[in-house]
Design a protein around this nucleic acid. Structure first.
Lengths: 343, 343
DNA sequence: ATGAAAGCGCTAACAA
DNA sequence: TTGTTAGCGCTTTCAT
């Protein structure tokens, strides 16, 4: 049998080949595929049908190069002081998932990058000037405030999840950590707790604000009370150990723990159980984040909720506007107390 | 003051501008920046210093277009039958984190994409022929086995996390789900449990194999026993409801639950507690995945461990070899029983 | 409505 | 060792 009938659907390599097949010029194909109205409807549909049939899609690299737009947003997770090599923080993961959703809805692709500022001081520039992205989202400030400020001074389409400081250059979207800390401490105080231990690594700006908020609440309250503070790493394996030793070292009269994250809170609850200390009877535990798993613990976790869904949308919308050249101010999302069983 | 002293560090837009600044040609700059040995050491270092000083980096789009290599790997999460719009499954997230680590180590960037096959049958081709990626990793097969097979037939650099079926074309790396199911069921049987309920959506290939393995184990055992099966969605909000109603409907003599994931297991344990059924006394619960949180529940979760770290490394290494043109076979990672308190 | 041609920024073959 | 040049695949004036 002669292969005259076979349409020979060899993979089309570029617009020119499709153009030859359609008997038109490359320019026309480009216009047709872009769906612009500058092509006769009949021609456009014929070309689109042909493209579909051959599974052809214009090369995004070439089009990006030509137009100066890539259709890609870079999302970077800076791991400065954090010990672990892994992107493990479930809150960050949840934020990432929400960002992915909202960016996809807006037609953007995502380049995901884990950055290690200690090994590469240029981590942020590397992304912004790579030519691969139209804008950059940072999940967390880590301990890189200065670097972010420097880059933001000359690179507009950059939005960061984290804390806003007076007069900072870069656009930050984040939960009101200070208010969240106040909320947590006030709740503990109003349950009659007075001796609070804070568990978290305050080298992270947000964590530091949570502690500051709690301290402020204690000072505002007219009662005998105090607060201790122990640093706890974010990486899963070292966390339990650090919390365990904090539990050993801390004042035995401690009657409440304010954990900088739900993960820390959950681990603390487990370790307290192992030591036969009841929660919240002996020691109340309050977390931060309100991860989905906060409902799954026993007792269920009382915590300060960060609204990731709205946070992600806010970040995306700020970024879009900055990509258009607008200078958008930072934005703070409210923190909310979620009352469950642990405090 | 005249600005003669100011080095006027205007942003360099391309290699040509840097070349002019260095008094060499664009070609030389390109070679110098690539670190190749075809440039006099002194010249190379001078150029590199200049680039560093001005924060210049070659445009990756242009270089990608020219070389046909992008240095980017696409990671796609297909959500076919899954209801939720969100990339929420913590096991997938954990795999993603590990993949990110190992790919970064190999010098690759990652394009992350959430795919909705029901809304876009071309979801996979869109990524493979975009020209944006050197290879593609799929996190899960969802219900897209046929589509993956079709694409894999003509696109070599594709590796999928999931199940291997006899004679399949595409390269799959995954835990031995069948063996994992056997392991789980045999453990329950050996603890004297006989009436097992399986909780999970068997439209996912891996889930289906876990159930099949458990069934096989039951049949192999010479004992009176049976197994029921209830579908449970992956999305967090609907999961609890589905499990709750399963708990209502199921045979009251049920003495064990085999959950298709740790998340399902944790939710089941919580709901059982709420109904005053003790775990594992009244009902044993065994999970699947061994997420970090499996240690945090009360009681701690007995589960079947999937080795994500090695799984991610295996996927990456298979992909690299396929990108070099080798045809690499599928790979199955062993499942392991992790004994804790819940079963 | 369509074609021709220039050029986005880079790399690599070829020349010198 | 370095410079020159062609061209990766696309979009977009400018002509027609």
């Amino acid at each position: 049998m002669i292969d005259e009938a076979a349409p020979k659907p060899r993979r089309l390599r570029n617009i020119a080949e499709l153009a030859k097949l359609a008997g038109v010029s490359a320019g026309t194909v480009s216009r047709a595929l872009a769906g612009k109205g500058l092509v006769r409807a009949e021609t456009r549909e014929r070309i689109q049908a042909l493209a579909r049939e051959h599974g052809f899609r214009p090369n995004q690299m070439a089009s990006g190069l030509r137009t100066g737009q890539t259709g890609v947003i870079g999302i970077a997770i800076p791991l400065g002081h954090e010990q672990g090599q892994h992107i493990s923080d479930p809150f960050f993961m949840s934020l990432l998932g929400n960002l992915a959703d909202t960016l996809v809805d807006r037609g953007y692709d995502i380049i995901l990058r884990k950055c290690l500022p200690n090994q590469d001081p240029d981590w942020l520039d590397r992304l912004t000037v790579s030519g691969m992205v139209d804008g950059v989202l940072l999940i967390g400030q880590s301990d890189q405030f200065e670097t972010i400020e420097r880059v933001a001074a000359s690179y507009l389409p950059l939005v960061v999840w984290g804390t806003y400081r007076q007069n900072q250059t870069h656009c930050a979207v984040g939960t009101d950590s200070f208010a969240g800390g106040q909320l947590a401490a006030n709740h503990l105080l109003s349950s009659g707790k007075q001796r609070i231990v804070f568990l978290g690594d305050t080298r992270g700006l947000e964590i530091e604000r949570r502690l500051a908020g709690a301290r402020a609440a204690l000072e505002a309250a007219q009662a005998p009370h105090w607060m201790e503070h122990y640093a706890v790493p974010l990486s899963a394996d070292q966390m339990a150990e650090a919390i365990g030793s904090a539990l050993e070292v801390m004042d035995p009269r401690t009657d409440a723990i304010f954990a900088a994250s739900d993960l820390i809170a959950m681990t603390a609850i487990r370790l307290l159980h192992e030591r036969n200390r009841s929660v919240p009877g002996d020691i109340a535990v309050i977390g931060f984040d309100d991860l989905p798993v906060a409902e799954q613990t026993t007792p269920q976790l009382t915590t300060i909720k960060q609204d990731v869904a709205n946070g992600a949308r806010a970040m995306a919308s700020c970024l879009m506007r900055r990509m258009r050249g607008e200078t958008v101010p930072s934005q703070t999302m409210p923190a909310r107390l979620i009352l469950r069983g642990s405090a």
